[in-house]
């Protein structure tokens, strides 16, 4: 069973580790690129096979990490913006509520004074 708070925990984890995850993605990409360049410099079976399997696998993994970090960052920003909006709107509601005269305590207008 999936815990309902799990996505928030994941977002929190990725947000905390985003810089390390991005550094990891960059290093994985560099290793993948190294394998690919090796296969081009020395096109013998082993480098070519390594570049087309391990090299590209590392590249895909790095790109997924990058995409995940960017997505989580975007979600986090949206949540923060949403929380700010809620805070602002509740603050405005409180202010307007305190500025308005108490409706229940005011007496109803007298019909006798009317023409």
């Amino acid at each position: 069973m999936i815990e309902p708070r799990a996505p928030r925990n994941v977002i929190g984890f990725v947000a905390r580790w985003s810089r390390r995850l991005l550094a990891l993605a960059a290093i994985l990409t560099l290793i993948g690129l190294g394998l690919m360049v090796w296969s081009m410099a020395q096109p013998t079976p082993m480098p070519v096979i390594l570049a087309m399997s391990v090299g590209q696998g590392l590249g895909i993994l790095a790109f997924l990490l990058f995409g995940g970090v960017v997505l989580v960052d975007q979600l986090r920003k949206q949540r923060e913006a949403g929380a700010r909006d809620v805070e602002l709107s509740s603050g405005v509601a409180r202010e307007s509520a305190s500025a308005r005269p108490p409706v229940a305590s005011s007496p109803p207008p007298s019909r006798e004074a009317l023409p």
Binding site: L33, S39, M40, P43, M52, G55, A62, F63
Partner: peptide
């Protein structure tokens, strides 16, 4: 990072595959 991790490595992989394919025929 989009260019460093995404666009440019994809360019390398795609063209490297074609170059690798040519190399494997020699």
């Amino acid at each position: 990072l989009l260019f460093g991790i995404g666009v440019l490595p994809i360019g390398t992989a795609a063209n490297g595959n074609v170059a690798g394919y040519h190399a494997t025929k020699t």
